[in-house]
Design a protein around this nucleic acid. Structure first.
Length: 264
DNA sequence: ATCGGTACCTGCACGC
DNA sequence: TGCGTGCAGGTACCGA
């Protein structure tokens, strides 16, 4: 589900939680805590107030009173909800002084962590693509030796790009997903940066892509999926040249591209 | 230090 | 109807 635009939309939908106090927390699936102890974590959370809520790539970071951070990752199928009742895949229930926050995740790839210091795994992420200068993006890109699709998915290169927006940006830039980064000419690298900025900006404005069941914390769907030009359009005509969209595996991930418009 | 492959989990669509 | 297969927005870990 959630890449940068979806997580950004979710974060905006939970901004009303800033200033709320956590009265209690209940964790129903220990796996989501990644080794953390449910009981101890609940005790440590109780009584703390939610401060700033920020997105770092695909991570959601809430600062807490008394120092420390609650770190959330939605994985593939994670959802936050401020409304509705706990269901089959509800793994965490935060009871607040006003309202509630539920964490649902059918595939359990998501994570909830409590850190007393700024989390190292967040500090290790690459820059935000929307805050990065085009020249820095191009320079960094050409230092790597891999296929461009794999690099876009590498969160240490830029943070927040996932399978949908990698494919969509590559299409807009006319670059084949298997193109070699080291041999990509400067003008094409700069064009890719612009394509990435454009597609992410448009997707945020659309509230993200709702592929199967993605919704924000208020249950609202995104509608950028109707603007996808290649992602999951295998066999359909290219919006630009009518050639059939193809699908190949790059770094074990489906990659959708136009064989005529996108060059290596 | 980097890279590709695999594992982790559940649900769904599809063909037989 | 049921069963097997392949696929799905994610990251972490392994060995090369």
């Amino acid at each position: 589900m959630p890449e940068l635009p979806e997580v950004e939309t979710v974060v905006r939908s939970i901004l009303p939680l800033v200033g709320r106090r956590i009265l209690g927390a209940e964790f129903l699936a220990a796996r989501i805590l990644r080794g953390g102890d449910p009981e101890r974590m609940a005790v440590r959370l109780a009584g703390r107030r939610i401060g700033a809520i920020r997105r770092y790539g695909k991570f959601i970071l809430m600062s807490l009173s008394g120092g420390g951070y609650l770190l959330l990752h939605l994985g593939m199928t994670g959802r936050l909800s401020r409304t509705g009742a706990p269901g089959k895949h509800t793994h965490a229930i935060f009871t607040l002084d006003r309202g509630v926050l539920l964490f649902d995740d059918s595939r359990q790839f998501g994570a909830i962590e409590l850190h007393e210091d700024f989390p190292a795994r967040v500090a290790r992420l690459g820059p935000e693509p929307l805050e990065m200068a085009a020249e820095d993006f191009a320079r960094s890109l050409r230092r790597h030796r891999t296929r461009i699709k794999a690099l876009l998915l590498n969160q240490a290169f830029v943070r927040g790009v996932g399978n949908i927006y990698a494919d969509e940006a590559l299409f807009r830039a006319g670059i084949h997903p298997m193109a070699s980064t080291a041999r990509l000419r400067l003008d094409r690298a700069l064009r890719l940066h612009q394509a990435l900025v454009d597609v992410l900006t448009e997707a945020i404005a659309a509230g993200g892509s709702s592929i199967s069941d993605y919704v924000d914390a208020d249950g609202r769907q995104g509608f950028f999926q109707v603007s996808h030009r290649v992602y999951q359009r295998t066999g359909e005509p290219c919006v630009s040249c009518r050639a059939a969209i193809r699908r190949v595996l790059v770094a074990q991930r489906s990659s959708h591209f136009c064989p005529r418009c996108q060059k290596r």
